[in-house]
């Protein structure tokens, strides 16, 4: 698939000596939703800030729809809308005034109808004449999104869009992101809510300590790394796992009444029939069993932990 953003060998070291990005290579596809996951301080915001022109790159190159972000910054930036993480928003002007400012800044002539439609989409139309300082935190967040959309960007960056917002706004945002995607807008979001990436993204990139450790289709990633667990609730608590079964990937709960068997769902032989037979032979009865697949969260935690 065609790339809309092409990042090559991008590195960044801040004046403080912090090595924020280490040789990042990433192709972002036109029209996709890409979620960048990573713990705090992993380099997510630095990456976004460089693409958007807020931070100078160290070395490497970034092309946005074929336009270099340094030499051809006007063309590159015109395509991008950015919703920043912090609520740093000038507070004294009205919602309509700030929308007009954003649109003008990106070189677009004033268009009252378009601005009205964006404000309607984000349930901000009723607040259009209010000063931003009087709005609630959630409403301010909506204003930041509206500002980013004011110039009709083809690419939208959402930096931690739902950090600290209520459930209703979070669902509205997801809804909005889907609508934008239908219109062909490419969306890149950073988050450390894994639920969010799982819910919305087509692909997931994981950043840790400035390195992009992997980028994969969400479903492929979950299949590839997903582990299944079989949980058996026992009739009688065990003191220990019988020696004959110790070679199997089994774990006993502290009270000794739950056995957890972990297996790879892609193996042809899951080992479940063998396990059940062995349990039977040792006279271990169970009253309940259930199997579950690990979530993206488990995958993420295990990936981030793996690294030194």
């Amino acid at each position: 698939m065609e790339s809309i953003i092409s990042i090559k060998n991008l590195s960044k070291t801040y004046a403080s000596g912090l090595h924020a990005l280490k040789d990042v290579n990433l192709e972002i596809r036109r029209g996709e939703i890409l979620a960048l996951l990573g713990p705090n301080g992993a380099g997510k915001t630095t990456l976004i800030s460089i693409i958007c022109g807020i931070v100078n790159p160290g070395s490497g190159s970034v092309l946005v729809d074929g336009h270099d972000i340094i030499t051809d910054y006007r063309a590159a930036r015109s395509l991008i809308g950015l919703v920043p993480q912090e609520l740093g928003i000038a507070t004294f002007e009205s919602v309509l005034a700030t929308m007009a400012f954003s649109r003008g800044l990106f070189g677009k002539p004033h268009d009252a109808d378009f601005i009205e439609s964006v404000l309607h989409d984000l349930s901000l139309w009723d607040k259009r004449d209010e000063k931003i300082m009087t709005l609630s935190g959630g409403m301010k967040r909506r204003v930041l999104i509206a500002k980013a959309l004011a110039h009709e960007p083809d690419i939208l960056f959402l930096d931690e869009p739902t950090a600290g917002v209520d459930v209703e706004l979070r669902h509205d945002m997801w809804e909005m992101v889907r609508r934008l995607r239908e219109r062909g807008v490419t969306i890149i979001l950073t988050t450390h809510y894994i639920e969010e990436a799982e819910e919305m993204a087509d692909r997931i990139g994981i950043i840790n300590r400035g390195e992009l450790s992997l980028v994969e289709e969400k479903t492929a990633l979950m299949n590839k790394l997903g582990k299944k667990q079989l949980t058996l609730t026992l009739q009688q608590p065990l003191e220990a796992i019988p020696a004959e079964l110790a070679s199997r990937p089994l774990e006993l709960s502290e009270q000794g009444d739950v056995l957890v068997y972990t297996f790879d769902c892609h193996e042809e032989h899951t080992g479940i029939p063998d396990l059940l037979r062995d349990l039977n032979e040792h006279g271990i009865d169970f009253k309940d069993l259930n199997s579950s697949q690990s979530s993206l969260e488990d995958i993420f935690v295990s990936l981030v932990r793996e690294q030194p």
């Binding site: 015109s78 950015l82 912090e86 800044l105």
Partner: peptide, 12 residues
């Protein structure tokens, strides 16, 4: 206030 991000990210 941080709103400078908008000017820096704009095609200006």
């Amino acid at each position: 206030s941080g709103t400078i991000y908008e000017v820096l990210s704009a095609p200006v």
